[in-house]
């Protein structure tokens, strides 16, 4: 008897719009149906269906050999995923919260990322999980982890902002022959404005390609994840004053689509970088340097950034709101550049 299809993976086939979280579930489900080499590992992902219920119903459909509940040992099961990938499987590892990836940092950066380099060949695996603040989760359930891995050759980092991209990019990540860190902002998981109708056909979104979320020619805002939506809100506010803001959604952080960034800067002459991650060592610094290398002559003003402040993520709501970049912050920085 075939197990019932869980509702969170049936939106698109029912002709209904899917949330960001449901798009993730659909991608996993469809890839597991498409390719029997794909299997899942993680804490409480089987019987419990995962902390956010992304894998609810998967155990009944795919069984315990493809939905593997693991001990609470992120390093151990990420290492095991590498071994399974060596043997030709395509593991998708769930971090219950991406903050918990730190125990797996060793195996991810030293073993998995260096696999090709060491002559051990490609290592196809995905490490995915929820990131980001705004949920009053405090310092250990709210972090953005991209820059912990950004400096590691051999890894790819994906951070989608829409349900459509989340599904298409996760499929690409699973089909990719190299290891991919896949970040999902939990503020988007069930956000009503992220609910959208997804293509019925099997589709992928290529890794390494940015997307123009909004076209404009007065100022470029480069951003990703939840901050795409904050930036679009800011752009809408500025549009009422006649400013035309271009918003570039990076979608993939590594490899970085620097050509898309440079092309937009050459058009607008001004660049604002917005990220939720903390400021020092954030991706804004790298992007600014790349623009310096690729489009310096086109700049008509300084490159600015709006980021979280350099602090662990606070627990108190008042503190967290102060800590996180706001729409008002983006508007203020953009006005500075527009008037420059």
């Amino acid at each position: 008897m075939t197990a019932a299809i869980p509702h969170q993976v049936a939106r698109t086939r029912s002709g209904e719009p899917a949330t960001f979280l449901e798009a993730i579930s659909e991608a996993l489900w469809e890839e597991m149906e498409r390719d029997e080499r794909v299997f899942l590992m993680g804490e409480d992902i089987g019987e419990y269906g995962g902390a956010f219920k992304v894998t609810r119903g998967f155990l009944a459909r795919f069984g315990a050999t493809r939905v593997v509940d693991t001990p609470i040992s992120e390093g151990g099961f990420t290492g095991a995923a590498a071994g399974a990938a060596h043997m030709g499987l395509r593991p998708v590892v769930e971090m219950q919260f991406m903050d918990f990836v730190s125990p797996a940092y060793d195996v991810l950066t030293n073993y998995i990322a260096t696999s090709r380099y060491r002559g051990a060949g490609p290592l196809p695996l995905v490490v995915r999980g929820p990131v980001g603040g705004g949920n009053r989760g405090g310092p250990f359930h709210s972090q953005n982890v991209e820059m912990a891995f950004f400096h590691t050759p051999g890894l790819k980092i994906v951070y989608p902002a829409t349900a459509r991209d989340a599904k298409g990019l996760l499929k690409s990540a699973i089909r990719d022959d190299d290891p991919v860190i896949f970040e999902e902002h939990k503020g988007l998981y069930r956000a009503p404005h992220c609910r959208e109708l997804l293509p019925e056909e099997d589709y992928v979104v290529p890794i390494g390609e940015a997307r123009t979320a909004l076209e404009g020619d007065d100022l470029t805002v480069v951003t990703y994840g939840l901050m795409v939506h904050r930036s679009l809100e800011a752009a809408a506010a500025l549009a009422r004053d006649g400013a035309r803001i271009e918003v570039i959604d990076l979608r993939t952080l590594l490899p970085l689509d620097e050509e898309a960034i440079a092309a937009s800067v050459r058009k607008t002459g001004k660049l604002l970088i917005v990220h939720e991650d903390t400021r020092t060592g954030g991706i804004a610094g790298e992007i600014a340097m790349r623009v310096n290398e690729r489009a310096f002559e086109w700049l008509d003003g300084p490159i600015l950034r709006v980021t979280a402040i350099d602090s662990p993520v606070p627990f108190s709501g008042e503190l967290e709101d102060y800590f996180l970049p706001s729409v008002e912050d983006v508007v203020t920085a953009a006005r500075y550049l527009l008037d420059y």
Partner: peptide, 26 residues
């Protein structure tokens, strides 16, 4: 032959456990 990588002992026990998991799957 599965080669070593990383500064920490014990990593390869994790990796080889995953290989054993793959053997069972198949």
């Amino acid at each position: 032959l599965i080669g070593w990588g990383g500064p920490r002992g014990g990593t390869m026990t994790q990796v080889m456990a995953g290989a054993a998991l793959a053997h069972r799957r198949r």
